[in-house]
Design a protein around this nucleic acid. Structure first.
Lengths: 216, 216
DNA sequence: TATATTTTGTACCGACTGGTAAATAAATAA
DNA sequence: TTATTTATTTACCAGTCGGTACAAAATATA
């Protein structure tokens, strides 16, 4: 085999779907199916979503789900990554606002729209996916707690930056401030799941912002 | 049967445990058992608490549980009443503070201690007992939503009173203010369940109070 | 066309779910 | 003592849980 042929093969391997796989082709699109699974987990939580309900919602049979995604837990983890990098990616955008105040305001305003968006389940999956659960789901519960922790750490680092930039006073405890904002954010998620309307959530967000200056 | 005897019988019936019941006596104290069940439901949520775990925790066999409390759902409802009238009764005390500000401050400070109390599970059972669930638990999910609604209505009425007493300005939207406080309260419950310490919750409560004046 | 490879659908698994029938035990009433 | 009433224990029920064995179907390669 000469070098030219080697290069061609390498190129084919590198190109995602260029090299056709050998066996029977998948009858579904993985990302579309993950989105359908997301919808189910988001609505009913990790434990509340049964494999039979998932099977029905995804429109593919159970052995195909297991072949493609492992088991229920790994399926949820893949859904979670998709949720975090897709649905919830706007959080990263909000942090890019020029000041800490604007970042928080954008975060909360986006949360209002996101939590009450009628095209998706109410609230945040990372908050209510497994707040409480049976023994068998403790790993997922911890995983979601870790995600929330990362979110909070992200807020903290944004506030640290704001202090460096003189945007927040030096005496501000950024961890505490981040926890305060995260608390309101998570409370809004609970409210949304409990039936709070967009307008009601908006009022909560506006009250929070009206208070912003008192915190620092 | 003369009137004197009739009266005696009536008196015995009225006295709770004076008239001995006919058959084999219960081998357990109902309230103690309800407290043990509370602990399990509080930790794992309604769905996450299995009957076999409950059986083990209560120390009595399943048929006795069913005979005494109906089924899992009615058991939870009885636990819920006990929780609301017992564990959480301090909310009523907080509302009796002379001003709205003091009432909210006491509410949040008590919540800090309650959510992080090491002798009970973390957070609030009414918040995380069934935030999400499968189809079979929708009634309990709605019941908890209703409880949270009552809590919020209670806050609203306290703020209405404060307006009447000139303690809050007339322009305050009491429903919005109640939802704002309820949101923080519920967010603190999520935080506690996620491992937040007493000190961290305290900082959140203090920040909320520092902002109080900006809301009205 | 024959073969290797992968996915699909059917049909099933043991374990656990909430819940209960039936016999036994412990008390009161007659 | 005997009958009645209630609670307990053991053993079990149908249904659902997450998960899988197996054979048929669909593709690429040879």
């Amino acid at each position: 085999m000469n070098d030219v042929v080697k290069t061609e093969i390498a190129a084919k391997k590198a190109t995602k779907s260029a090299a056709k796989p050998r066996g029977r082709p998948l009858a579904f699109n993985q990302d579309e199916v993950l989105d359908k699974a997301l919808n189910v987990f988001w609505s009913h939580g990790y434990e509340g979503a049964s494999m039979s309900e998932l099977t029905q919602a995804l429109g593919i049979n159970k052995p195909s789900i297991y072949a493609a995604f492992g088991n229920k837990e790994t399926l949820f983890r893949k859904v979670l990554v998709r949720y975090a990098t897709g649905s919830v990616a706007f959080v990263g955008q909000a942090m890019k606002e020029p000041t800490a105040r604007q970042a928080v305001e954008k975060l909360l305003m986006q949360a209002v729209e996101f939590f009450s968006d009628k095209s998706t389940p109410d609230g945040c999956m990372i908050v209510q996916g497994a707040l409480t659960c049976g023994q068998s789901s403790l790993a997922i519960q911890q995983e979601l707690i870790a995600y929330r922790g990362h979110f909070e750490a992200y807020l903290t680092s944004r506030f640290d930056l704001a202090k460096e930039q003189g945007d927040l006073p030096q005496h501000v405890n950024t961890k505490q401030l981040a926890k305060y904002i995260a608390t309101i954010h998570q409370g809004m998620s609970v409210q949304a799941t409990s039936g709070a309307t967009r307008e009601e959530l908006l009022a909560v967000a506006e009250m929070t912002m009206k208070n912003w200056s008192a915190n620092n």
